[in-house]
């Protein structure tokens, strides 16, 4: 970092922004980008903020603290947490295996990791519901040991875990690939056990990426709708997720309530997004010797 700063200094004195604009298209690309972002993203979002803001605090609070809605916050948050924890472990395992080992079929395994992003959520939803139904491929075996997944909160966890599989794998993979082997090899040659080296040397480097991936997976799971509703059973107070609650209010033509709940959900998502961005910026800096 220090060397690039030095070499950049003379240029900056001449005015880096100006010298950067040797390239054409600043005005055009700025204009198109701002127009698009304002029209597609900011205008609708400000519409929601104004709608929810115009309700008055008391009515807003009344709507968002309705017991059925509160139950759906809890179900959604707990299921998203469980799904993200599963994905942290599974994602770390997959990233490790895909980076460290060579074996037949590795390319296929790597490629299929992205399936949950490419497969429409409604398709994932009916597929998981069928797999875990009482007479389904998985459901019939699980029923024998007394585990019910379909139409229970556990089904919500399964759907959320499925749709957010790629996040941790894809954030940990590049970090593992770039990891310098010296420390690890030194520790191993000095006789430390694999587990000790992993815990003391590898994990401290990997965990920020695991957290980033986990947070992305959590954010995605909080908003998941398509995959969840088919397997959740959707019974009030038990297995309704928050996105479904918004939908329910909409179908009752209760627009203010839908807007208020949506404002809460969007606020939480934006905070998470901000956290992820700040976190990622920090640990990338640390990784590259900030």
């Amino acid at each position: 970092m220090a060397t690039t700063d030095l070499s950049a200094r003379p240029a900056r004195r001449l005015g880096a922004p100006v010298s950067k604009r040797v390239l054409p298209g600043f005005g055009l690309s700025l204009g198109i980008s701002l127009f698009f972002v304002s029209l597609v993203l900011l205008l609708p979002i400000s519409g929601l903020v104004i709608r929810a803001g115009g309700m008055g605090w008391e009515q807003f609070w009344f709507v968002i603290s309705d017991p059925r809605v509160v139950a759906s916050y809890k179900v959604t948050a707990l299921a998203a947490l469980a799904a993200s924890l599963f994905n942290c472990v599974f994602g770390l395992l997959m990233a490790w295996v895909l980076v460290r080992y060579d074996f037949p079929g590795k390319r296929l395994l790597d490629a299929i990791m992205d399936l949950p992003f490419a497969l429409p959520t409604a398709v994932a939803g009916i597929t998981l519901a069928t797999l875990f139904a009482e007479n389904g491929w998985y459901g019939q075996w699980l029923a024998k040991i007394g585990i019910e997944v379909a139409y229970t909160p556990l089904g919500i966890v399964v759907a959320m875990a499925f749709t957010s599989v790629p996040f941790v794998v894809r954030t940990v993979q590049p970090v593992l690939e770039e990891l310098a082997p010296e420390d690890e090899e030194a520790a191993v040659s000095l006789g430390a056990s694999d587990w000790t080296v992993f815990r003391r040397i590898l994990f401290p480097v990997l965990w920020p990426a695991v957290v980033t991936g986990g947070a992305l997976s959590f954010a995605r799971s909080l908003g998941e709708y398509g995959a969840v509703i088919f397997i959740a059973g959707n019974s009030p107070y038990v297995s309704e997720v928050i996105s479904l609650m918004i939908f329910v209010r909409l179908e009752e033509y209760d627009f203010p309530a839908a807007s208020a709940i949506a404002a809460v959900v969007m606020g939480v998502s934006l905070l998470l997004l901000l956290f992820i961005n700040v976190w990622q910026g920090r640990y990338l800096k640390r990784l590259h010797g900030g």
Partner: peptide
């Protein structure tokens, strides 16, 4: 950061944003 918003926002909320406006 702004262009990441659609990734973070629940699809149902996205639909609602447009319905409201």
């Amino acid at each position: 950061t702004l262009i990441d918003i659609p990734f973070a926002v629940s699809p149902v909320v996205a639909g609602l944003l447009y319905l409201l406006l």
